[in-house]
Design a binder for these strands. Structure first.
Lengths: 191, 191, 191, 191
DNA sequence: CATGAATGAGCTTTCATTCAT
DNA sequence: TATGAATGAAAGCTCATTCAT
């Protein structure tokens, strides 16, 4: 049972949790309605249909994350610090919206996504790409395709985050620092 | 349209591709039947129902991969060589069954999996865990929880593999070697 | 096309007629839906599945009949009067729910019946058994097993009722009285 | 598993048992095939389709019974003796083909029966009707419609027979004699 | 002749969506 | 504006029937 101030938010956060846990296709509108504490018909007052709901949620959280990432990005600082900012952003965003990044990842090539969702997602990838490109230019990041580097950082982080969410791992400061170091080791150029 | 020698194999490989691409829930029996070039009813001659089909495929490929991994595992050699074996096994297995590891990963906590599937999956995790534990004992692997280390290697590899499959990355020897090095850097203890 | 006040009743009475006429297995959900004037999906809002529908109808009418039988049963009067009460109850119940007793009889050992249905049916048989047992004790009923006596009265009455329903017999007072006498002759002890 | 000399008989007797026990609609062709110890396809070498099989079995046993009844019918003897012949014929026929009369009764107005089956059944009814008519003419049988009298004798006998088949009643000579007397009491004119 | 693997029509059932209240 | 009963299109699944062997 969601306890958001307004019904729209309640629907969105309930749907997010269910989409992340069961997947978009295994989640029914009545499930969302029950979890959000609203009638099934109410969902259609806020979203044209299930597909639109899925896309809206995908984009909404993606945009929040992208903003989190861009907000205060230390372009002038060292690559390592920039990396730290990215990592911290992931942590912060995940703390606020525990299921959002996982939902985005597991559905980033889902059949129901529309053009706008795809390009929103591309926007996120581009930010990361820029970072890696500048890092490679400065000989601080490995000469791997950016897509590969993104895959490593993104894949590793999210798999970890899944373990935390499932209670198999405790997200203590020490662990997070170690994980950050580990991922950094993966992408940085060892001299 | 699948062109396997027998219908069972045809159904299995068609289903694997669709499950990997669209997800289990978004894949319908008629879709599988069409893709496998058989009648919808034929699928039920080989598998009791869709759930059983999902579990069978999950376990079948998981077992092949586990065997691939255990086959000729260089227990007596260095940790780095053991890691190489693991990486190479992933490459080989993925070459043979391009969608299998991705399907396994994306569905490893899916709602339709039965007990046997879960324990088969646990078996795979245990192999990797043993490797990391011995590496940590020898001070060659970072002191991170094994679950976290597995998440890093597994998550990174599969994200990469997805890019290859989608044609966004070319799986040349150089790239693979670099990726292997990158993941190794992520998990090894830097002195 | 049923014209009941509410949809549940409409479904129940439509299903009863079809189950009685064609049998449970030869009756499809779309048939019931059409006859009840509802959508096929609506049936599932009231009954979990076809099996539950079958059992509910079986029990519902069985309970009404059992009540009809027990209501005002003249325990203190003569065996003949008690028999009359039973016969009249059958007539009354059949008048209200023309297909119900026939449906119950033709499906009393059907494969879809659950434990509750079976014991409800047993409850009805027990009432009749008690009657026959007391009649035998008073030397007014033949010394046949109660099951046999029940079979005679039950089988005869329902076969008759079927003929009435199919229009092959007119249920006039004279006929009913004669039939009652005939069945009574079958079970009573002739001195 | 049937052990008839030829496959056709094996199919027929297996189908009869299953049709009687589960009903025509709840009996599948594979069930019959398994029980008859033949391949499912084999059934179609002997019977065009399931409907034809159902009708053939209905008619075949009906004809045997009708012959049993007509064979040695004591037209010249007393009504009571004629009645005895009918009762004994039922017993004999039921001993030979334990499920046949029950199948015929429970399916005598089934949806799959064709014209020929219906008229075969009518033939049986006519024999009984003639008997009752002559009995009424001789003032030895109650002045009830023949259909009603047939219903009584037929319904009572078969309900009884069902109990015997289900093991709830032992078909000893004494019971049979008592039942015969009971049914006779039901139809005879008491002076 | 006999078979049983294969099929698709049609069944049971689900669920996104509508709409009267 | 909010609802949930009602719906029917489409899903999962069964089984009478066919046909290559």
């Amino acid at each position: 049972m969601q306890t958001a101030v307004n019904k729209r938010d309640s629907i969105v956060s309930s749907a997010l949790v269910l989409f992340a846990e069961r997947g978009y296709d295994a989640t029914t509108i009545p499930m969302i309605a029950t979890s959000a504490g609203v009638g099934a018909g109410t969902i259609y007052r806020y979203f044209e249909n299930k597909e639109v709901l899925g896309n809206k949620i995908f984009q909404e959280y993606l945009n929040i994350f992208t903003e989190t990432l861009e907000n205060g990005f230390p372009y002038d600082e060292s690559i390592r610090n920039q990396f730290h900012h990215i990592f911290i952003s992931m942590i912060h965003f995940t703390t606020e919206h525990s299921q959002a990044l996982y939902f985005i990842k597991t559905h980033s090539s889902a059949h129901f996504l529309n053009e706008e969702s795809h390009s929103s997602f591309q926007g996120l990838l581009n930010i990361l790409k820029s970072f890696f490109d500048s890092g490679k230019a400065k000989k601080e990041i490995k000469e791997l395709p950016s897509a590969a580097l993104i895959a490593i950082i993104y894949g590793a982080f999210l798999e970890l985050q899944r373990l935390v969410r499932m209670g198999e791992l405790e997200p203590e400061a020490k662990l997070l620092a170690d994980v950050e170091e580990s991922i950094w080791d993966a992408v940085r150029l060892h001299v």
